[in-house]
């Protein structure tokens, strides 16, 4: 091989290394990496992230996605966690704790901890998570097209072909099935009766949704008239210019609580705790409530009646929600998915 040829190969190799190096040179400053739901990121940025960055003099790196997908990623990165704190559903927090992915939270470092509603202080009774918001799950429906008085009304022959139902793998899926089971008078933890009822209508039901945002478009296009949703996705439906109402079925509403967790082996626990405390503080929780982003878990937050009406506000409301206990959710999940796939999936 002649010398020039060698040089050329060397040069191209170097060029390649340089481009790769440039790729790596991102984000070397002090950062806190958080993993959150993708909802309302504009509001979060304005109300939570930007103010916190000013206080800590650090940069927030935000990963967004739904609870299940982000948990799967935490599992994949178990050996070398890339995030410093995450917010997930209560059941997913318990799943993470059982999988050994998370650490206990040192609540003595959270100045605002004692201001939280009791239900939010340690939702799974294992010291591994702290609740920061809760929400009701009920049915958003076209009040001009249908009347919803019970969860079972959704499956009425004249309605079933105009509804979307949450897929069993989403956070809204099991609670909706749980309420349907109550309406059918067969509320066993395996949700068998409810899954069978949905399966019986699987050809009529428009879609088994995984992303609740899609429902706004589907409602607008009159693809659907109703769907069980979490209160946190309610706001866009009110802007459609259509008569969309929030049902109060006789069986009651279900819902969920979202919690903060810290991955095991995270390198920035002090900073993560500082951020969590900031997020739980009265001012921030109030600001988020006033923008209809999150219902407060901090009992010092007082909001006007008008705002309270659009949220899941107050401890009484929180207590009235019919929640599936995390442990039940976790123990049953595989069975639910299995019977769902058998009855609904095909």
């Amino acid at each position: 091989m002649n010398a020039t040829m060698q040089k050329a190969i060397l040069a191209s190799g170097t060029a390649l290394m340089l481009t790769m190096g440039a790729a790596q040179a991102f984000a070397q400053e002090k950062t806190l990496t958080i993993s959150v739901y993708a909802l309302a990121q504009d509001e979060y940025k304005q109300l939570v992230y930007d103010p916190f960055e000013k206080i800590c003099g650090c940069k927030l790196v935000v990963e967004t996605g739904n609870s299940v997908e982000r948990l799967a990623k935490m599992e994949a990165n178990k050996a070398n966690p890339v995030i410093d704190m995450a917010v997930v559903s209560m059941a997913d927090a318990l799943a993470a704790s059982r999988a050994g992915l998370i650490d206990k939270i040192d609540t003595s470092k959270l100045a605002n901890f004692n201001k939280l509603y009791d239900v939010a202080k340690d939702p799974n009774k294992d010291g591994m998570s702290v609740g920061y918001t809760f929400y009701a799950t009920s049915i958003a429906y076209r009040s001009d097209k249908m009347k919803i008085e019970s969860w079972a009304d959704l499956l009425k022959p004249e309605y079933a072909s105009h509804i979307a139902w949450p897929n069993v793998t989403t956070n809204q899926g099991p609670p909706a099935l749980y309420m349907l089971g109550q309406a059918l008078g067969k509320d066993t933890p395996d949700l068998k009766a409810a899954i069978e009822a949905v399966g019986g209508k699987k050809d009529e039901i428009v879609t088994f949704y995984e992303k609740s945002s899609q429902l706004v478009q589907l409602m607008k296009q009159e693809e659907i008239w109703a769907a069980p949703i979490g209160r946190f996705t309610w706001a866009p439906f009110t802007k459609l210019g259509l008569p969309v109402a929030w049902a109060t079925p006789k069986e009651g509403q279900t819902g969920g609580m979202n919690v903060m967790i810290m991955p095991k082996g995270g390198k920035k626990s002090e900073l993560a705790l500082q951020f969590m405390d900031f997020w739980l503080s009265t001012d921030i929780q109030k600001a988020l409530a006033e923008k209809f982003v999150d219902s407060p878990a901090n009992k010092d937050v007082k909001v006007s009646d008008e705002i309270a009406n659009n949220l899941t506000y107050g401890e009484e409301t929180a207590k009235s929600l019919k929640l599936i206990p995390s442990a039940t959710a976790l123990d049953q999940r595989a069975g639910w998915v299995k019977s769902w796939n058998e009855k609904v999936g095909q």
């Binding site: 909802l39 990121q41 790196v61 990963e63 996605g65 945002s213 899609q214």
Partner: peptide
């Protein structure tokens, strides 16, 4: 990963919200 997304993936993620 956190803060790292390509344009099409980000578009899909945005559409989900």
């Amino acid at each position: 990963g956190p803060g790292v997304r390509t344009m099409p993936i980000d578009m899909i993620a945005y559409m989900e919200i």
